[in-house]
Design a protein around this nucleic acid. Structure first.
Lengths: 252, 252
DNA sequence: CGCATGCTTGACTGAACTCAAAGTCCGTGG
DNA sequence: CCACGGACTTTGAGTTCAGTCAAGCATGCG
């Protein structure tokens, strides 16, 4: 009928946490430049709307690997949906969790310098990535390349987040680190258009602990402590932030 | 007995590798593109030798600030000589040391994304920087911009180092962190063309501790312990690495 | 249903922090 | 020239916070 409306592409990244039945969307395998700009929340200037080029999507199931250490650089990825975990594995086999990329974040930029990826990236939930091939990034024919500039702008942003993560792991007390982690998660969910007060963590206590350089037991205890103080409500991975003010106080 | 070398306080910390006596060069105030490529150890491809443009140098005395948080982005800097310290200051006034840039490192890339610098950079020793102005980076007239591409390649490399630093701070034991810090310092001096076994640290115990997230006393104790074990020889900031093998073993 | 994984909580231990004091180096000024 | 002060470093002693080990519970999946 007339009012049968396919799901509009502009509505699809609104904060509906889990998408019910998106057959049409599931079949789409391409994104345009505009969607990438929107996902990255790019606020810089773009010379000419580069609407012609399309970018292939890549779908991952939870647990699948997105990128592996040593794999040759083939391009960057923008997270369109889902949550992932980036980590470095040391020679002795110890893993260190660097970050938890989510919607709008960029993956793979650590592969530019040595032309191979230097970190592991695995999907924590089902994911939808948009690939920006190396050829698009570095093609000399494009002249003043909007894509390249946008990518580097995003990389600069990731550095800042990286530095913040780094600084995050340096609070004196472990409870403070966990509180700060939750506050930052809340802010990231907000930036993605989701609720700041209520979210589900996609990662395990072990991953959080590894990221913050504390043990999983300490993370668990910190969650419980913040819960008993009435600052947050924890039920497994479901987090409700009851007082953002009190949470911030705990960061010192 | 014959040649007693006077030790100037500004040059004392430099292992005497490359630069013998650079009176003429010291007076120069400009560097060319080729020198920047060489400093950065850029191994990528450059389309056209951009020998025409010259880049102004900036000289800093020890203790002077190179960049400040919040200052508007005006370009990137390549360290030509000297050592610096980058740090972030939190709202509560706590400082966190991010890195110790030295010869061949890039400064200021965290300013690209928000168009203002997001970290403090101060000179630990007298320094010589080469400025790459924002105008050179982003000028659209240049078409396929070698400078921009080189800059981003270097940024990608800095990210990797950043990640390594981050991972560095996650060893279980504090002595292991200090050992790893020394090993990395040694490797960096090597990459700069200095001696890997003998160098002078430009930063204080406090800065090292802050960087590694331990106290200055712990750093001092770790140095002493490594000294007593015969792995290194410490005399204030003079470090001799007696056994790189043993040092590596301590990182686990 | 049974098993695996993840989470919580408790008791104990030890590594690193804090506080404190003394020593070293360096620049500065009398 | 030497005395002084300040910044940096080393070392010691006591304390505390977070790691380790262990047990039990919840959840989800084949």
């Amino acid at each position: 009928m007339m009012n049968v409306q396919p799901i509009s592409s502009s509505a699809r990244w609104l904060p509906s946490a889990n998408q019910p039945a998106l057959k049409l969307e599931s079949d789409e395998r391409w994104s345009n430049f505009q969607e990438i700009l929107s996902l990255l929340r790019f606020d810089g200037h773009v010379h000419e709307m580069n609407d012609t080029s399309l970018f292939r999507r890549r779908r991952l199931k939870a647990g699948q690997s997105a990128l592996s250490m040593g794999q040759p650089f083939e391009g960057l990825y923008v997270v369109r949906l889902g949550a992932l975990k980036t980590s470095m594995t040391h020679v002795d086999g110890a893993e260190h969790v660097l970050a938890f990329p989510m919607k709008g974040d960029l993956l793979g930029f650590d592969g530019i310098c040595k032309n191979k990826y230097l970190s592991e990236v695995v999907a924590l939930t089902d994911c939808d990535l948009i690939k920006i091939p190396a050829a698009e990034l570095f093609s000399p024919g494009r002249g003043c390349n909007d894509i390249e500039r946008m990518a580097y702008w995003a990389i600069s942003r990731e550095i800042v987040q990286e530095q913040t993560n780094y600084a995050l792991s340096h609070s004196a007390k472990s409870e403070a680190r966990v509180a700060r982690f939750l506050r930052i998660q809340s802010e990231r969910f907000t930036a993605m258009g989701y609720s700041p007060n209520r979210f589900t963590l996609p990662m395990t206590r072990r991953d959080i602990g590894n990221h913050l350089n504390v043990t999983l037991e300490t993370v668990s205890r910190a969650f419980s402590a913040l819960d008993h103080l009435g600052i947050i409500a924890v039920e497994r991975r479901e987090i409700k932030i009851l007082s953002l003010e009190a949470l911030r106080k705990f960061e010192n």
